[in-house]
Design a protein around this nucleic acid. Sequence first.
DNA 1: TACATAAGCGGACTGTACCCCGCTTTGTCG
DNA 2: CGACAAAGCGGGGTACAGTCCGCTTATGTA
Lengths: 216, 216
Amino acid sequence: MGGGHAADPVALPLTRSRGERADAARNRAHLIDVARRMVAELGVDKVTMDGLAERAGLGKGTVFRRFHTRAGIFFALFDEEEQRFQQRVMSGPPPLGPGAPAVERLVAFGRARLEFLAEHTALARAAFDPGRPNLVGDSPSLFHVQMLLSEACPDVAASGTLAVQLVAALEGPVLLYLQAPDDAPGPAPLIGTLADSWQVLVERVCDGGHTPGRSQ
Amino acid sequence: MGGGHAADPVALPLTRSRGERADAARNRAHLIDVARRMVAELGVDKVTMDGLAERAGLGKGTVFRRFHTRAGIFFALFDEEEQRFQQRVMSGPPPLGPGAPAVERLVAFGRARLEFLAEHTALARAAFDPGRPNLVGDSPSLFHVQMLLSEACPDVAASGTLAVQLVAALEGPVLLYLQAPDDAPGPAPLIGTLADSWQVLVERVCDGGHTPGRSQ
DNA sequence: TACATAAGCGGACTGTACCCCGCTTTGTCG
DNA sequence: CGACAAAGCGGGGTACAGTCCGCTTATGTA
């Protein structure tokens, strides 16, 4: 192949940016759209790759090319919500957004995050791909908690592991231990209780429980 | 065989639960045995239900009857290790075992648990069944942390959610965010760092950070 | 020991995630 | 404008988790 008049030894493998082709982008958007509709209509675990492909009028191979795995679809869906959430965190009103002391922001972040996860539990769990780098590994949540923690108590935040553990304390219960949203009589009060515990956790970690008679 | 000179006056309640037939128990033990060998030999994700059934010389239906799901097999394997671990916690030497102050026991528990999980990451992750009650929902770990927390700071432990969050902080990073055991050059130092952070977490939560003790 | 009964067993069957490779479309360069 | 590569597409193929139902075997009773 190509033995003829090869003027260029290398055909510029970097000719243009690795941007995806126009039709590919269109298909991706369409797939996400159809997927969201199917999730709303059938529920997460009734959405199959075949069904999605058929209903989108595309081949199965195309679906996998875009999203790599079944979880990948739900991750894409979840990620859209995640970005909306991030928006509120980064440029919304305090104390969730900037403009409040770090500890207050951490507390507010936890509460908001719990509500967010409670609202999107099904998606978040479906987006979880066992045996993979992972969901929260490079999540904006981790980054944000790490930042606020560094501001609130730099000594303890240095290693970075504490932030990971705090994020795990926040997300783990909802992602791992809670059951389906309509399992218990009321999920809302449980979320509220988790938020309260989170507040205790954060406040005690950050200022050591307000030691009397001794300033820090 | 048997009927004639059976020396068992009473069925042993520990070895045979009511209703499980002798052959069933034998098969369960055999399956677990074969499964462990296969995990050691092929790695967790190369173990299939068909393969296990065939290599055990049993039908596939039998395997599913015993363990319900693929994760169930790894859960059974993991559970055996878990029970050995529990033994150390409940009747081993302090500070992991009884005989030390609650906070010290919590710290020791965290460190031991992290090492334990690091050693059995593959099994633990494989035992995780997405869309199920769950792994840690009624785990001995949760029970134990809840108990020690109630002893160390009853005010804060009352709701029970804080214990859940602490367990999540402990187990989440290893189960969710860490990668394969041989991914990073050294998993051991990371576990050590996590253990240090855990200590900070527990000590600050329990006595609000006015610990006059040593920092190592 | 022979019988009745229920627990256990096997393996064919189904549904679905994911792979593969030849064909089509898109974008670029002469 | 025409042709060439590469990126994208399609859908049949594969492997595996989990189900079903008729047959087998253990166990209590006469």
